[in-house]
Each structure stands twice: as structure tokens, then as C-alpha cells.
């Protein structure tokens, strides 16, 4: 028989996690869909469940020397309106699902689900966020990029709970979030793109971009980013097509019920091309 626990403090949650293999439910906006059952029957949980949505310690959002801490229990709609939260993340959140889902979904839940179509993961990865995991044994920090291992696979040990995500405080000249869904709201991404850059004179000082929904996990190429960083804008212009060609191999989209691989491939590269054009123009 499946047992269900509601923890009211972090300690209480960690005690349960230390002794049991459980599903952790924060907002439940994706978990409850995964475990959906025939209407009128209890959700289909095949092991114990720990509800963490009542733990106040997990709802904190604050800034310190390490960066912006976003508690695992903070709802997306709270983050959407919190000026401390990086603007790019807020922009992304404003397009996640629907208003009512954002009222209970969480940032930690989105990355813990590790769906290839999870929108906020793209920003977590792009901004080098760290996932902070706690257990009775202590604290472990994992880069968001390494935390997601594959489709619905994450680097979390059975006794660990995501406490928060930490975003480094860092200003870029320009930031872009572009979600391609199938309609204007309440939509699951066909693909998504996030990019940031800063210029120094006519040189690219910093460049990052990440793609969502076009591979088993969010894709980012540190190699290509390094290649671009340091380029002059005219070099970037000259090498644009070549870079796009290289980036086209970074992603590996598929056909599914929402779109097809040709579309995802083409549009992802179109958005990248437009982003690169903006950088190139930005220097003039």
C-alpha cells in the first residue's frame, strides 16, 4: 500500500527521504498528469509520496554573495513577479503553460521532471544555475546542465531533496528567450531558444545559447561558445553560416505529436541566425 507524507519542515522531509524511496511532489503540475488515473480514482503512484509544498523554508527567494537563491517550493507565478529573479527567467516563466498552472508549478519541479520540453530548464542551463541538493548527509551542488541526464533522468540520490537553485548574478548586454509553441498560451514547446551576449568594442565578449525540445535534454555547446567569444563582429558575420552549420549538429530533434524534426531543425537554426544577426548589427 502506497503511503503519503506531508512534510512541514525541511528536517521532517529529510528524515523521510533518509529512510524511504518516495516520489517528491511540489506543485504536482506535471507529476499528477504522469500519474493520472481513471477519473474518480486515486492517482497511480507505485511508491510512497512525499508532499513538500508546505515547507516554508523552501519558498525563499533571496540574493547573497553566491547569487540569487530560488527556493524549490516557490511557485512560478511568484517568481514571475519577483524583481530579484533574473529577467530572462521571468520572461520564460511568463510563457510556461497557463496562469493557473503557474500558480502551483515550481522551478525545481520543472528541472526535476527533466522533460525535454521543460521550458525553464533552458534558462537554468544557459545561466549556469546550480541545483542545490540536501540530505541528512549534507549539501551537494550540481550544475543544472549536469543535473539532467536524459529524458526524465536526473542526478538526484534517493535521500536528496532539491532545496533551491542558485543563479549567478551576471549582466549581459542582451538576452533573448524565444518559445515556439503551437498557440499563444497553454502550450507545450515545439522548440525553444535562449541566448545571451555581451560586446566589448567590436568584439564578442560573451556568448551563450541553449536549445530546448530539440534533443533528449537542453543542448548548449561550450565549444562553439568559446569559438565565438573573442570574435570581432565582422569575423562573426563572415563565419555565421559556418557556425549555424556547426550548431545544426548540436541538436537532434524528432518527430512527435506536436511537430516534426525538419521544422524543429529549420526553425531552431532560423532563430539562431536571427540572434547572430542582431549581435552583428549590434556593433554598428
Amino acid at each position: 500500500m502506497v503511503k503519503k507524507y506531508i512534510a512541514y519542515s525541511l528536517d521532517e522531509a529529510l528524515d523521510i527521504l533518509a529512510s524511504k524511496d518516495v516520489y517528491i511532489v511540489a506543485g504536482g503540475s506535471d507529476m499528477m498528469v504522469q500519474k493520472k488515473n481513471t477519473a474518480g480514482l486515486l492517482p497511480k503512484f507505485d511508491k510512497d509520496v512525499l508532499y513538500v509544498s508546505h515547507i516554508d523554508e523552501l519558498k525563499k527567494v533571496y540574493e547573497d554573495k553566491d547569487g540569487i537563491h530560488i527556493g524549490a517550493g516557490a511557485h512560478l507565478s511568484d517568481l514571475e513577479n519577483n524583481k530579484l529573479v533574473p529577467e530572462l527567467l521571468r520572461k520564460c516563466i511568463s510563457e510556461v503553460a497557463s496562469v493557473n498552472i503557474r500558480h502551483f508549478a515550481t522551478l525545481a519541479g520543472n528541472i526535476a521532471n527533466a522533460s525535454p520540453a521543460g521550458d525553464t530548464i533552458v534558462i537554468d542551463v544557459l545561466l549556469d544555475a546550480e541545483v542545490v541538493l540536501v540530505s541528512k548527509k549534507g549539501i551537494r551542488k550540481v550544475k543544472a546542465e549536469d543535473f539532467v541526464l536524459g529524458v526524465r533522468k536526473i542526478d538526484r540520490h534517493q535521500d536528496e531533496l532539491i532545496k533551491e537553485l542558485i543563479f549567478p548574478v551576471h549582466k549581459f548586454d542582451k538576452e533573448l528567450w524565444h518559445k515556439v509553441g503551437s498557440r499563444k498560451a497553454d502550450s507545450i514547446s515545439k522548440l525553444s531558444f535562449a541566448g545571451v551576449y555581451s560586446l566589448l568594442g567590436d568584439k564578442v565578449k560573451e556568448f551563450r545559447c541553449a536549445f530546448g525540445s530539440v534533443a533528449i535534454k537542453v543542448m548548449r555547446s561550450h565549444e562553439l561558445e568559446k569559438e565565438i567569444e573573442g570574435m570581432s563582429l565582422s569575423e562573426l558575420n563572415a563565419q555565421k553560416d559556418e557556425l549555424i552549420e556547426k550548431y545544426s549538429h548540436v541538436i537532434a530533434p524528432i518527430d512527435d505529436q506536436r511537430s516534426n524534426k525538419e521544422y524543429r531543425q529549420k526553425v531552431a537554426m532560423n532563430i539562431l541566425a536571427k540572434f547572430l544577426d542582431e549581435i552583428i548589427k549590434g556593433g554598428k
Binding site: S182, R183, K184, A185, D186, S187, Q257, R258
Partner: peptide
């Protein structure tokens, strides 16, 4: 969520 009809936002 897969069979897409317009929302009020559309």
C-alpha cells in the same frame, strides 16, 4: 494539450 484549439490569447 496535443490537439490544439485556439485559446482566448489567440
Amino acid at each position: 494539450s496535443d490537439y490544439i484549439i485556439p485559446t482566448t490569447m489567440d
